[in-house]
Nucleic acid binder design. Structure first.
Lengths: 346, 346
DNA sequence: TTGTACGCGTTATCAC
DNA sequence: GTGATAACGCGTACAA
């Protein structure tokens, strides 16, 4: 009892042909109940497991889906992958994970690897440094569904699932304005990624819609870590007109600003209101819990999987690229809840 | 230019046979430089990609490795998976991810799924409710390497990579004793998992080794969330002899205890010292940063992958099961750094 | 109801 | 150096 058992092994044991075994195992109607039962039982006793590779080779369908992310161990992407896995597993798909480490080189490499592995689809979030798009054409030329999530590129025929980053930026800024903040700084990221640009635009429009003017000096481009947030605070403090609120495109940056502001002796949220983006797990755990825009990554993953499934189920039919935009949800916590305003609300 | 290109397509175009194309592509020595170059070029121009499924079927080697975890989106497991992926990718393996949701049922199911997918190995952390072990035998019967990480079961012939949980519990407790704590409570988890039992044993031995006695009333079994930590504090506060320190097997529980203790008006770390376990990302981000035992999940993943690679490279040779035990590292932060002791150290 | 024969794409083993 | 052929494990028309 060991090694790989094939339908030939069980056929030989029963003095029948492999075709019959195959039929019995697949509940083919054209087979007697007797042999079906017999085959089923001996298959189980011999410890037979179907070789999906052979099936995949024959059918041209591997039931493998590739997922490409910058890093797997950031809570945002991990949640998305969980959503994808949980939506695809019940449909019989297995998920292969690849990381790009934010480089174009690895992105191209992993795409080719997944193509070699004959995946039935690729779900991915493009890396920051991704500029060229010919590797996406490789995928499309092979008629393999490609779905972007969160970070997308404009490629014809490719569906995407994102959140409405404009809306997220708008809501966060609007909330700060409602808290009575007048001079709201915005810490943005690398604009080669659409998401940061759109969050900024939401921020800008919210200002204008509420009679505030947009001022260049309150816009900073920073990296996504706490150190960058601390440095940003120091930069802002050199201004003649210091801001009274900060909307950051990253929770880590937001945390850095809070740390630095508190070090400088400011009282939050009364002197400064801060809102972050992503609703990282830690934001709700802090003593001064941090307001943030939730991106519903689990839902995003499920939706990306659903879009893929729609694609495969609509072969032959007109398959139109889908651009799903999820609505972000601002979660208001202590870092932006001025006591004065809270009192008013009561 | 589209659809799947096979070596037959390129053979036909060049009026040669598929075997020759295969040889050219695989740098077989018995081939002329002229045809090799010709094949290489036309292969590239036609957009040929090797079908690894066919290769896998023929060779019996899929270059797929299955990874099974309770949940993919906890920082600990996500880091492990990252470590695994980064160690396996350069060796030509792709990683398939499955989640058990902590149920035995899904664990058995995912194992069978991965076996069907013809994975070359399975790396897994068993689920809490996993009791039966026959599904592990299925794996071993097929001569497929199985490696446990973090959470293991005693199964003959199975390698494992864990951290020395006894050591972790011991060091954490010893540290608390050195801070001057005399009555150290321990919040443990479900003892059906070895890890929690061992952490407790480390705790107990550290007490005894330093002349403190172990007292039942300071040992509580709790779930792994902040609510459980809060509840545990309330339970401990009902004791006549209240503890002066808490060693928790979970960072989330530790956070809960800190929140509740502060609510009750205690000053930390002077009234209470708290140490957690896992070094979750948030522990270092809190205003009162939390001391914790780091499990080096990234390293653990890399090591699990390495153990697997050792297995496959030693086919035929005596392959002995490896029991790798990584050394945990206590990270001392504010939650257990008494100012008095700190002053003394200066 | 069951057996026969073929093909999925690839490489390896023969021949030539 | 290259061509022909078998084999990996499976499902399925076609024949019986």
């Amino acid at each position: 009892m060991s090694e790989k058992i094939t339908i030939y092994d069980i056929a030989k044991k029963l003095n029948i042909t492999a075709a019959t075994v195959s039929r019995a195992l697949n509940n083919n109607p054209r087979i007697s109940d007797a042999t079906r039962k017999l085959v089923m039982e001996t298959a189980a006793s011999m410890g037979y497991t179907q070789n999906k590779l052979a099936l995949a080779l024959k059918s041209g369908k591997s039931n493998l889906v590739g997922v490409i992310v910058p890093y797997i161990d950031t809570s945002f992407f991990a949640s998305i992958i969980r959503g994808i896995e949980e939506a695809l597993y019940p449909e019989g798909y297995n998920v292969i994970i690849c990381q790009t480490h934010e480089t174009q080189e690895r992105e191209v490499e992993t795409v080719n690897t997944l193509l070699n592995a004959q995946v039935d689809g690729i779900l991915m979030s493009v890396s920051k440094s991704s500029k060229d798009t010919t590797h996406f054409d490789h995928i499309l030329n092979k008629k393999i569904p490609l779905v972007f999530f969160d970070r997308r590129k404009n490629v014809k025929g490719v569906s995407s699932v994102t959140i409405d980053d404009f809306e997220g930026g708008y809501e966060a800024t609007k909330h700060l304005i409602e808290q009575g903040c007048k001079k709201i700084a915005h810490l943005s990221g690398d604009w080669s990624l659409e998401i940061y640009k759109k969050r900024f635009e939401g921020y800008k429009h919210a200002l204008l819609d509420h009679g505030l003017e947009f001022d260049d000096k309150y816009l900073l481009h920073v990296k996504s870590d706490t150190a960058a947030g601390r440095a940003a605070v120091d930069t802002l403090m050199k201004l003649d007109e210091k801001p009274d609120a900060i909307f950051s495109s990253s929770d880590f940056v937001a945390l850095g600003t809070i740390q630095r502001l508190q070090e400088l002796g400011f009282s939050l949220p009364d002197d400064f209101c801060v809102v972050g983006f992503s609703n990282e797990p830690f934001t709700q755990l802090m003593e001064l819990s941090i307001s943030s825009v939730d991106q519903a990554p689990h839902e995003m993953g499920k939706m990306a999987a659903k879009v893929f499934l729609d694609h495969v189920s609509s072969v032959g039919k007109v398959k139109i690229e889908q651009k799903v935009e999820l609505t972000p949800h601002l979660i208001i916590r202590k870092s932006s809840s001025k006591s004065a305003v809270s009192e008013l609300a009561k």
